[in-house]
């Protein structure tokens, strides 16, 4: 068994309004950042999963992302091994 460092990223599904992302986007021009668009706010979780393979760690990571870390009604999640 190996400990795999995992990153889970949770963001709102496309089509779901993102007031946080929209507010950040509106703030950027005032700070001199021009041409920035499509800002979407989300969350990232870092954890380690003990598993016998990378694939198994990712499967477990996706399962816990779907069950707890995200609300699939409005959010989507991606899981990846963190490059240390």
């Amino acid at each position: 068994m190996t400990n795999y460092p995992i990153v889970v990223e949770v963001s709102l599904r496309s089509g779901i309004a993102d007031p946080e992302g929209a507010t950040i986007e509106r703030a950027l021009p005032a700070l001199g950042f021009a041409g920035v668009a499509n800002v979407r706010a989300g969350k990232a979780f870092r954890l380690s999963i003990e598993a016998s393979s990378e694939a198994e760690a990712l499967t477990q990571g996706q399962a816990l992302a779907d069950r707890l870390l995200s609300n699939p009604v409005i959010e989507q999640s991606t899981v990846r091994i963190e490059n240390v």
């Binding site: 309004a17 007031p19 609300n71």
Partner: peptide, 17 residues
């Protein structure tokens, strides 16, 4: 109740935050 799946949909942050 929405998180538990007993009611449809979800409650999101207010427009205007």
């Amino acid at each position: 109740l929405t998180e538990a799946g007993l009611l449809p949909g979800a409650l999101q942050k207010n427009r205007g935050l």
